[in-house]
Design a protein around this nucleic acid. Structure first.
Lengths: 104, 104
DNA sequence: GCGCATGTACGAAGGATGTCATACAACTTA
DNA sequence: TAAGTTGTATGACATCCTTCGTACATGCGC
């Protein structure tokens, strides 16, 4: 096998497409809030398996999808993992203060 | 009839009881967001009838109740009106930056 | 290759949410 | 007092949300 792994990025709204109501709805859940708080302090993308949450795998998939479709996280496939990264620059640009609020 | 009008205040969470997820859920709706944006710029409490919203009276009652139970507004009965006021001090104390975010 | 780990897709179930129509209560004003 | 205004309460309805089990796909390590 030659070349690097695919690292396909999953579909997500562009910065301009971020909607406040969608972002707030995504953050109005304790589980998703816990994910975001973990990602705020993370220096590198984290796989789903790095999160300890009181739900099953299938439900975790659901919550990560909600966060991605709201534009809060970016998901990138890497090997058999899905790496999650906070879209900090986009969120700060469109909704300054939001991440401070969530993490305080 | 002697004395002032009752001005009964409706039940609401105290400042300490405000929960971020409940507040974000309440704000994740365009109609309720419009109400809050009107109240942010208002200098005095506004009756429900002051808001022009694309829903019926009954639905307006519902949305105002959601905002009050989340702790975002205070409702006080005054005559046959229900006056609505933003709980700015409580929100600023518990979630600094939130109102700026909503209004930006 | 074979098993294991990671994570998805699908469908189902139960509950929450948003909307309305209708009927009603309380206050204001003519 | 009578009519109009303001807003609620209740019940119904459709839709969305959260959760899970199950089956499956993909990639990694032995």
């Amino acid at each position: 096998m030659t070349g690097a792994a695919p690292r396909r990025q999953l579909p997500q709204p562009s910065r301009d497409e971020l909607r406040l109501t969608a972002v707030l709805a995504a953050l109005s859940d304790e589980i998703r809030l816990a994910v975001v708080r973990d990602l705020v302090t993370a220096t590198e993308p984290l796989p789903c398996s790095a999160f300890v949450l009181p739900v099953t795998k299938a439900t975790m998939t659901y919550h990560f999808r909600v966060l991605r479709e709201a534009g809060i996280i970016e998901q990138r496939e890497q090997g058999n993992r899905r790496m999650n990264r906070l879209r900090r620059a986009d969120l700060d640009a469109r909704f300054p203060g939001l991440l401070d609020l969530v993490n305080a």
